[in-house]
């Protein structure tokens, strides 16, 4: 889903940069307050792991391939603002050194994969876990959050392409094509996200209970309640 240079109109690039910059501003500000000495190494390790994980391209339908984005698990374990910072680091290294994603489209790529791809999973997971405070609720929230996060990120990529004058097709065509293809990838992201979360619940529940770097209007996932539920 990394959009290269040339795919988007300058105006769309500028709007995406501006929208992303708002989240960067609040994200970095909140991270200064909330990052602690346990969360910083975890952020480093998880960012490196998902950079590496993005190198694995697994086959999906129609001869195409997909790779894990990692935004959902970064958002759920670190909090959405720290997840955004992690995804920004990954996308910056990919764009600068590997040409995976453009420079002019960097704001759009961070918006799709670092804002939408991190915040939507966190919000969906938070809503489901608050309503269903069990381990099953957390896993269901992680799966659905990752699925919707991936599909919505693709919808935004389709919108950006469709609205660009450089792209010869309508918004409807671009959005439909992206959402359809990514609904399959979203299932994969959901399964992997829930599996990683399950593994962390079993092996390192302490990591899930670290304070999250999330907006105060959203609040933290009720992980301690979930782990204590025994469900």
């Amino acid at each position: 889903m990394h959009i290269p240079d040339g795919f988007l109109s300058p105006a769309i690039c500028a709007i995406c940069f501006a929208a992303t910059a708002i989240f960067w501003f609040f994200g970095f500000r909140k991270a200064r307050e909330a990052l602690n000495e346990q969360l910083v190494p975890l952020m480093g390790v998880l960012t490196a792991m998902f950079f590496a994980a993005q190198m694995m391209n697994y086959p999906i339908v129609g001869g195409t391939t997909a790779h894990l984005l990692g935004g959902p698990i970064l958002g759920i374990t670190l909090g959405p603002y720290a997840g955004l910072i992690s995804m920004t680091v990954i996308l910056l290294i990919q764009a600068l050194f590997f040409g995976d994603g453009g420079i002019t489209t960097f704001g759009a790529n961070v918006w799709n994969m670092g804002v939408v791809g991190v915040f939507v999973p966190y919000i969906v997971c938070l809503a489901i876990t608050r309503a269903w405070r069990t381990k099953e609720g957390l896993l269901a929230g992680a799966f659905l959050g990752a699925f919707f996060g991936d599909v919505l990120a693709a919808v935004f990529a389709g919108l950006e392409l469709g609205l660009s004058v450089t792209f010869p097709y309508s918004v409807q065509i671009a959005v439909t094509a992206m959402a359809t293809h990514h609904s399959v990838i979203g299932v994969g992201e959901g399964v992997v996200t829930a599996a990683i979360l399950y593994a962390l619940m079993r092996s390192r529940p302490d990591l899930l209970q670290l304070p999250k770097v999330s907006p105060s209007w959203l609040g933290d996932l009720p992980i301690s309640d979930v782990l204590a539920s025994g469900g």
Binding site: D5, G6, F7, T65, G102, T104, F167, I173, H181
Partner: peptide, 19 residues
Amino acid sequence: NETFDVVAEEFGAEEASIW
């Protein structure tokens, strides 16, 4: 062979790297 690249190619989008 990413889905995004396939869809973009089908739709005729062209890359224009500046870096």
